[in-house]
Design a protein around this nucleic acid. Structure first.
Length: 322
DNA sequence: TCCCAGGGAGGAT
DNA sequence: ATCCTCCATGGG
């Protein structure tokens, strides 16, 4: 099994077109505020993240050149050393985390009818893909942090959590980063200290409680992969700090259930407007509507509607009085 | 200054 | 079932 070792500490390659099923828009995908994990570090059109393979942290930077339909996806990685296996792991990871296997061309074709509001987003968002986390705990915590919060703020909090409670890893190019905290690290933390240091507000208590449940063996996130959607949702909302929206985020971005459609303020607004004549139906009915209308593409529909909704938001509404 | 952000919990109707 | 208020935090 001892393959030819490419002993270099840095390695660059391109993702073969065969690994990507249809168009890709990397910038839209990474910047679309999905809660599978903290947002990747941006440098222009390049994005950097770290993933641990076989206990070895690998830093990788991905950048797309060319349009969604005709592009190259370049990867530059830093690790102690590179084997054929390492490169294979990085490729497989990118396929999963960026949803590169998803047949979004089929999604576009299936919902391109005249009366389908979604189709107006397909041109601008062409290649936007649904990200999946590689760690369920990370996905759950990030989803919990996002509740009643802005993407910018919860990502800042997540980075602070990593700095204070995650393991520091140094790379061969002199850079360093902090991994996402382990369950054990957050299970033993003081709630007030966590809140103070990471600015996560009232979310600190449920974050610690859920971490302790997992650490104590009272909660196993893996079971949610195999439960039916209804059972999984019912059990998730029993957790502190987890309601229908966070549960759907976890199921969608964490476990990769494409039929889950998280309903936040934006989705609630736009679905009420587009499909219920502006009448505010409950969020549960909104989620059910999305699942019934879009089926296995509900998660994708939600992702595209999210952008659609934010794009038509009126800029401001109040004027100062003299 | 005020409103709001990829909401949830607990309570009252 | 649906509606209300409160909950930290900080950007616009």
């Amino acid at each position: 099994m001892a393959n030819s070792m490419l002993a270099k500490e840095q390695y660059s390659f391109e993702m073969s077109p065969a690994l990507v099923n249809g168009p890709l828009n990397l910038v839209e995908t990474v910047l679309s505020a999905q809660t599978s994990e903290p947002e990747w570090i941006r440098d222009g059109r390049s994005f950097t993240d770290v993933e641990v393979f076989d206990a070895t942290p690998v830093k990788y930077t991905v950048s797309q050149t060319g349009p969604a339909n005709d592009f190259t996806l370049a990867v530059r990685a830093v690790a102690p050393s590179f084997s054929e296996e390492t490169i294979g792991q990085i490729k497989h990871h990118l396929v999963q985390v960026l949803g590169l296997k998803d047949d979004i061309g089929l999604f576009y074709r299936e919902f391109s009818k005249q009366d389908e509001p979604l189709r107006s987003t397909f041109s601008r968002l062409r290649g936007l893909r649904l990200m999946r986390g590689t760690n369920l705990y990370e996905g759950l915590i990030c989803s919990m942090l996002s509740q009643n919060n802005s993407a910018m703020l919860w990502n800042r909090t997540a980075r602070l959590m990593m700095q204070y409670y995650g393991r520091r890893v140094n790379f061969q190019d002199g850079s360093f980063t902090f991994l996402f905290p382990t369950v054990e690290a957050l299970a033993k933390v003081n709630t007030d200290e966590l809140q103070l240091k990471t600015r996560m507000g009232y979310r600190a208590k449920p974050v610690v409680e859920v971490s302790r449940m997992i650490a104590n063996g009272d909660l196993d996130l893996e079971v949610f992969r195999n439960l039916s959607y209804d059972d999984a949702l019912a059990r998730l909302v029993e957790l502190p700090g987890v309601g229908p929206k966070v549960a759907d985020c976890f199921l969608l971005y964490g476990t990769g259930r494409l039929e889950a459609a998280p309903v936040d303020v934006w989705i609630h607004r736009i679905v009420s407007r587009l499909h219920f004549r502006g009448r505010k139906v409950s969020r549960l009915k909104t989620a059910r509507f999305l699942r019934e209308r879009y089926g296995q593409w509900a998660g994708y529909a939600q992702l595209y509607l999210f952008d659609y909704a934010r794009r038509i938001k009126p800029v401001t509404k109040k004027t100062t009085k003299a």
